[in-house]
Design a protein around this nucleic acid. Sequence first.
DNA 1: CCAGCTACCTTGCAATGAAAGGTACTGTAC
DNA 2: GTACAGTACCTTTCATTGCAAGGTAGCTGG
Lengths: 107, 107
Amino acid sequence: MENIQFKKGVLELCVLVLVGREDLYGYELVNSISKHIEISEGTIYPLLRRLTKEGYFSTYLMESQEGPPRKYYRLTDSGMRYRDELVREWDDFVGRVNSIIRGGEEA
Amino acid sequence: MENIQFKKGVLELCVLVLVGREDLYGYELVNSISKHIEISEGTIYPLLRRLTKEGYFSTYLMESQEGPPRKYYRLTDSGMRYRDELVREWDDFVGRVNSIIRGGEEA
DNA sequence: CCAGCTACCTTGCAATGAAAGGTACTGTAC
DNA sequence: GTACAGTACCTTTCATTGCAAGGTAGCTGG
């Protein structure tokens, strides 16, 4: 997968969904998403920062035995609503694109 | 649909597929895609220009009874290969994103 | 004590879609 | 005949977002 552009906006959706399932810290999130989509730290950290600033995440620190303290992110109520809306928009969008690239009818 | 970011990269795919079905001119293309996805002229014309420069389209002019001459775009062989590759990448990408936002297993 | 891993962060840069604006041709209504 | 709406082309400027590269710091094992 080389197409960077496809990712635009979708990573935000992925981060919201994953953190919604359980509190996560940034480094862990990078590794989780990397299993499916190529991603780098320089993308995730600014994104987490922005979503926190916009009120979709709250954060707390926890000590770790394996390195520096971890900053966990938790989805807020506002974040849940936003996540659900984004999921709907994503499904809708995929449907529309598929109707263009597969539906052979309308000019 | 408000999420601009989802569109990044996908419009290129849509344009390639639509022009691949039949030669189209820019204005017509904007109207076609607009039926499914909100799009503006300022997006399509530079995109057509770029794809032409990259060798995916050839162009020709045709007079019109209803206004200025139309510049038609035709998909080249190279364009067809690129279109097919993009369609595959799109399907693959959608699968990966859905596995993240719906697959509840892996952390 | 230092190499490697964990874990955090920031500063540039590139790509792409949109808004706003501009040119020009055709037909119709006044 | 001229003013307007519609067709059709184009460009410049801006915002957003992902990435590469680089930096800080803690912990563990050799």
